[in-house]
Design a protein around this nucleic acid. Structure first.
Length: 501
RNA sequence: GGCGCAUUCGUCUAGCGGCCUAGGACGCAUCCCUCUCAAGGAUGAGACCACGGGUUCGAAUCCCGUAUGCGCUACCA
């Protein structure tokens, strides 16, 4: 493990990046960084029918957002360019020919299976095997005849009929399979494009990849890949097959779209912090020790050990993710940083303008203070606007019933008197002493004098409600500080008027 | 159906033959703090280590079966 690992993430741009794949990418990245090696991004766009330009962008955005930078790949280049498989067609063709010359592959002229055939063959491996081998022993004449008919051939791999193949995986017990059970897979499709099996192996070898890491759904076809390497006479890299991520408890199968957010972009939009998602995802199937829960990217790079990846599929749990995100917001982020990240969400909710979200200017101190009020209670950023929207409204736009302000006080008049007393008491605080702590002391003292000790709820309830117009809110003293004496007095006077109406 | 992998609290996990009457975290419950909601602090419930056989003085840890889950079984990746 002291050797420098070259790893790669090789997505096919056919859809948005799923967190299961992103987690695999993270593991690959960490392995490379931990050992001081390189991390490559390679785009497997050999399926022309399913290619999606937006997906490609989303993959790159997602990786960068979560903190992964690739050393080689799209937009950054590298010594093994190009990193798009569609631009490497000649290379694959050449290698396929090499295999044919070595009698390890051959042309096959069969008709593609129909959907029905495919399904029936799924249940009957023997049929599938013989179908794949129809042209394995074809004579020159047969090939010529097919060629004359104008059939475009595929190239199939000539799987050894004898012996066994072992998959050198480092997190799962290395599977051993009988070669005779593996069909002659297609290497080059009739349209001239390579399949994953050929393209990925050729590239992994050419790009000097030392650890092929990919989802466990590849484990079954891994023996084929080992045989391809052997046929070329190349040295086999290590294989790493992290498990898939499963649906939450009670739900069967792989984590699916139906379970809410599954794509990185969705988490971003919901207001999950990239460092929290990263932290959560890494721990879903990997652990450092028996107690550490919070890891920065630096920690992870330092401590990551591939062999500790769990071989068992883990279930996705929103609760733990939420906890992790809340922990980052509450304990890792500074108030300023937190506020900055809230900006787009505040704009989205119409609390500030889009321009202010980009450049808040002198509004920032207030925004920062206001966001700070709920830093310890919010789980995701998208919850922020609803918690503090009232702090962005003019005082006279607060809508609430006078009864709400009364709370457990005897009467509306009693509540009004409390607010009057609060104004008078707070006005004694000099401007430079108008801090949350002083305000709190000031009001507590007032409460004790007015209502006696242990009755603080009677005073604080109206004092707080008159500021926000609703049941739940941040701490009263903190809100008063944020509004300032001016804003506080204005809101109290409105409340008093309401109470006496 | 075939092949392969996996199996510790509801969930994520620690554990690599004696430290385990199984530890931590999330969630849950109760209590404390308290001007509300949170946060924070404390305590607790929760796992016969899937089941059945071995091996061993001794097994969650090693071996073999069974069950269950997951994956693959495409001219998709």
């Amino acid at each position: 493990m002291t050797e420098k690992a070259r790893t790669r993430f090789a997505p096919s741009p056919t859809g948005k990046p799923h967190i299961g794949n992103i987690r695999t990418a993270i593991y690959s990245y960490l392995l490379a960084r931990h050992t001081g090696g390189q991390f490559i991004l390679r785009i497997e766009d050999t399926d022309r029918k399913r290619f999606d330009e937006e997906a490609l962008q989303a993959i790159m955005d997602g990786l960068r957002w979560i903190g992964i930078e690739w050393d080689e790949g799209p937009e950054v280049g590298g010594p093994y360019a190009p990193y798009f498989q569609s631009e490497r067609l000649d290379i694959y063709k050449q290698h396929a020919e090499e295999l044919i010359a070595k009698d390890a592959a051959y042309y096959a002229y069969e008709k593609p299976r129909t959907e029905e055939e495919r399904q029936s063959m799924e249940k009957n491996p023997q049929l599938s095997l013989s179908f794949s081998r129809q042209w394995r022993e074809a004579t020159e004449e047969q090939r010529k005849a097919a060629e004359a008919e104008g059939i475009k051939p595929v190239v199939r791999f000539k799987v050894p009929l004898e012996g066994t193949t072992t998959v050198p995986d480092i997190i799962v017990k290395p599977p051993v399979v009988q070669n005779s059970t593996i069909p002659d897979h297609i290497l080059i499709k009739s349209d001239g494009f390579p399949t994953y099996h050929l393209a990925a192996m050729v590239d992994d070898h050419l790009m000097n990849v030392t650890h092929i890491m990919r989802g466990q759904e590849w484990l079954s076809t891994a023996p084929l890949h080992v045989m391809i390497y052997q046929a070329f006479g190349w040295q086999m890299p290590m294989l790493v097959h992290p498990p898939v991520i499963l649906n939450p408890p009670g739900k069967a199968g792989k984590l699916s779209k139906r379970e809410g957010a599954v794509y990185v972009g969705q988490f971003r939009d919901l207001g999950y912090l990239p460092e929290a998602l990263l932290n959560y995802l890494v721990l879903l199937g990997w652990s450092y020790d028996d107690h550490t829960e919070i890891f920065s990217m630096q920690d992870l790079i330092e401590k990551f050990d591939v062999t500790r990846i769990q071989p068992t599929p883990a279930r996705y749990s929103l609760d733990k993710l939420d906890w992790t995100n809340a922990f980052y917001i509450n304990h890792i982020l500074t108030q300023e940083d937190f506020a900055r990240r809230c900006l787009p969400f505040l704009a989205e909710a119409g609390l500030i303008t889009q321009a202010e979200a980009v450049n808040p200017g002198d509004k920032m101190p207030y925004i920062s203070k206001v966001c700070g009020l709920i830093k310890d209670k919010v789980k995701i950023l998208s919850e922020v606007p609803a918690e503090i929207d009232f702090m962005f409204k003019p005082a006279n736009e607060l809508e609430y019933e006078a009864d709400l302000v009364v709370g457990k006080n005897e009467s509306k008049e009693a509540a009004a008197k409390i607010l009057e007393a609060a104004i008078a008491s707070l006005e004694k605080l000099p401007q430079e002493q108008f801090t949350t702590l002083n305000i709190k002391e000031n009001l507590e003292k007032l409460s004790d004098e007015m209502l006696g000790e242990k009755k603080r709820g009677l005073l604080f309830w109206p004092v707080r409600i008159a500021l926000c117009g609703r049941k739940n809110s941040p701490d009263a003293s903190a809100m008063i500080e944020a509004y300032g004496m001016e804003g506080t007095r204005e809101r109290y006077n409105i409340a008093i008027a309401k109470l006496r109406a």
